[in-house]
Amino acid sequence: MTGKATEISELLAPTVAALGLELLGVEFAPTGNSALLRIYIDAPGRHVAIEDCEAVSREVSAVLDVEDPITSAYTLEVSSPGIDRPLFTPAQFARFVGEQAKLTLRLAQDGRRRFIARITGVEGDVVLLSHEAGDMRVKHDNIEKARLVPDLVALGLAAQPKPTGPRGKRKADKES
C-alpha cells in the first residue's frame, strides 16, 4: 500500500472492526483532480454480503468527512476480496501459504517485476516464494501489488484438464 493508503487504512480499521468486519487493505489511486479510494473488507467465517459493503460505506464516509484525509474529490468503493483476493500484509501472505499469487514488485528482483509464484512462507517482513526460476525472498515493502491466483478447477468454475498421454483409443475401444 502507498503511504496515503496506509494512513487511510489505519484511520478506518477501527470503524470497520466495530461493524464486526476486517479491513483487509486500501487502494488509493489519485488521478488529476480526483481519486479512487477502494476499501477491501472481509467477514470472518462467512461471505461478505452487499449489506456489509453498504454499512462500511456509510460509516467510513462519515469518518472521512470528519477527518478529511483526502483533499481532492474522490470516489469511494467498498469491496469483498473476491476469488482473486488481494494480499496487503505479511500476515495475509502467511494465511495463504501453498497458494499461488500474481505479484508486481516496486523494484525488479532476479530481473523481473511481475511474476506468478507459490507462497511458501513468511519470515518477519520477508515473503518466501517459489516460481519457475526457483525460490526467492521478497521484502514485503518491495511488493507493490499481490493477488491470489484462483484455482478455477478446485472452485468448480473450470473443467478438469484432460489427462495427457499417448494419443489413440482407450483400451476398452481397442478390444471391441
Rank of each mutant, 00 (worst) to 15 (best):
A146P: 08
F88N: 06
G20E: 08
V97P: 02
S80F: 14
L128C: 11
F28E: 04
R147P: 05
I8M: 03
P44Y: 10
I39W: 02
I41H: 01
A35V: 05
E77A: 08
Q92S: 10
G3D: 13
D173Y: 02
V60Q: 02
G124S: 10
S79G: 09
M1V: 06
I83R: 04
S57D: 09
D65L: 04
G124E: 03
T104W: 11
I119R: 00
G3K: 07
V122H: 09
D141L: 13
E77G: 04
E10H: 06
A73M: 04
D141E: 15
I8K: 05
H131F: 15
A35F: 00
I83D: 13
G111P: 07
A159G: 11
S79D: 13
C53D: 13
A29H: 10
G25R: 06
G156Q: 13
I50T: 15
R167E: 13
E54C: 06
M136Q: 15
A18L: 01
G32H: 09
P163C: 01
R38I: 09
S80H: 14
D151E: 03
I143Q: 05
D125T: 14
P69Y: 05
P44N: 12
V122I: 08
L37M: 11
R114C: 06
R38D: 10
N142T: 03
Q100V: 11
P161M: 14
P90C: 03
R118Q: 15
E7H: 12
I116T: 15
R58E: 08
R137T: 05
Y40P: 06
P69A: 02
L105N: 05
V66S: 02
D125Q: 08
V26T: 02
V138K: 11
L19A: 11
I119E: 00
E54R: 12
D52I: 03
I41L: 03
G134R: 00
L157R: 15
T120I: 11
T15Q: 03
G25T: 00
A172Y: 07
K139H: 14
L76Y: 07
G32S: 11
E144I: 07
L128S: 08
D135W: 01
R170Y: 01
N33S: 10
D110P: 04
S61R: 02
V126D: 05
D68N: 15
G82I: 12
L36N: 11
S176M: 12
L103F: 12
C53N: 05
P30K: 04
P166S: 09
D125F: 04
L24W: 00
P90I: 02
C53K: 12
V153I: 15
I41S: 01
A5S: 04
V26D: 00
L148K: 01
L148R: 04
T89Q: 00
F93M: 08
K162P: 02
A159E: 15
R170K: 07
K174Q: 14
F96V: 14
R85N: 04
F88H: 05
V97C: 05
S80R: 12
A13I: 04
V60D: 06
L76E: 05
A108C: 01
K4D: 13
G165L: 07
I83P: 09
E22I: 09
T31R: 15
V127E: 03
L103T: 07
V26I: 05
D135S: 09
T120F: 09
L12P: 08
A94N: 03
P69G: 00
L36C: 02
A146S: 14
P161N: 11
R118I: 06
D65C: 10
L37D: 00
R137Y: 06
V149Y: 00
R85P: 12
P161Q: 10
T164K: 13
S80D: 12
L11V: 02
